[in-house]
Computed example of a mutant assay.
Amino acid sequence: MTMPFVVPRSPGLEPATWAAYGLTTLTVIPLVWRRRAPVVVLLAILATSGLYRLALEGPGQPLPYTGLVIVYTIAALSPPWKRLATALLLVVAVPVSVWLNTRSARELTFSLFVFGAAYVFGRLTDARQRAHRVEAEQAAARERARIAREMHDILSHAVSLMIVQAEAGPVAVRTAPERAEAAFDAISGTGREAMVQLRRMLGVLRDGDDAPRAPQPDLGDLGELVERVRASGLDVVYETADGPGGGARSGAGALPSATGATIYRIVQEALTNVVRHADARTVRVLLSYGDEALEIRVTDDGRGPRPGSGGHGLVGIRERAAAHGGTATAGAGPGGRGFEVRAELPVPTRAEGAR
């Protein structure tokens, strides 16, 4: 609306005045408060625009930019009742403005179109922002669930092994002091390892992107995990096997690190359940590599399915498998004896692994 004050006007038109210039400025200043009181700003803009047209007949532009801005803001930020009030107000104000200006159907159609477009763009902005907030909330929920699974796995595994060793310690002190010493060493080592992993996780939560990143446990750490559980007195057999066409793939390096970490956590939770609930003597951990999937079986010779065996640990195993497009089941072992956790994870093809 300030162009007529910068570019010389046609001699046949009324010259621009400083009063008109000042009133034009008053139609823009209220936009500073458009987010705090958008409807009030709209009324102020309509009032100053009407005064400009009726009192001064100044050389303003036919397109009300300030009105479009405030309509967009109301559509994007205001509740439904304010949007409805704005729409009703515009239905009256736009025809009146056209009648005071050119009184042409063309201007009326154009004005309704541009104000309608401003309103639609405002609603689209609001919808996009809502979608972003929903995505952010869903991402936060997934992250909370992931952290809860990690902390459950770390603490449940460590505490279970420490309890078993602590219960065996007093008996070993009286009958086999060397075994008691080994039990206390195992308790100490398990506790230190749990503290390291918890500090690492809490450091990431506290410091965010500035926290040092340490690698997650992987297939290469399964041997150490088995040894820790074996130290509790449980006979653990760890085996790998190749399914049809799987011979060239049976190694930690053939799998993505995220898949390896998931396999580690599944085996860890399954062994923790054996230590806590199974009253078993032996447990077998078997990884079977195939062309398209890797199968994990953790089978014990304990007392089989137990009431409440669908707790957080098994739920976490199913969630971890599902996150990689796999499945997990738990139930009675072969022949109805013992208990077995079985998970199947899809793995990359050789071509994908090469990339």
Results as ranks from 00 to 15, higher is better:
M1F: 13
T2A: 14
P4E: 08
R9F: 01
L31Y: 02
L31D: 02
V39G: 00
Y52G: 06
A55R: 05
P64S: 09
T66P: 12
S78L: 03
L88M: 14
V98F: 14
W99S: 10
L100T: 12
T102L: 13
R106W: 08
L108M: 14
T109D: 07
A117I: 09
R128Y: 09
A131P: 05
A136F: 02
A141P: 14
R142N: 05
E150T: 11
M151W: 02
E167C: 07
P170R: 06
A172I: 09
R174N: 10
R174S: 13
E181G: 04
A182R: 15
A183M: 14
S188M: 07
T190A: 09
V204K: 09
L205C: 07
D210W: 05
A211R: 00
Q216S: 07
D218N: 03
D221P: 00
R230N: 05
L234H: 13
G246E: 08
R249K: 06
G260M: 07
A261P: 04
T262L: 06
R265L: 15
R276Q: 09
A280D: 12
S288T: 15
A293R: 01
D300F: 02
H312L: 09
R320K: 05
R320I: 05
A321C: 06
A328R: 05
G336R: 12
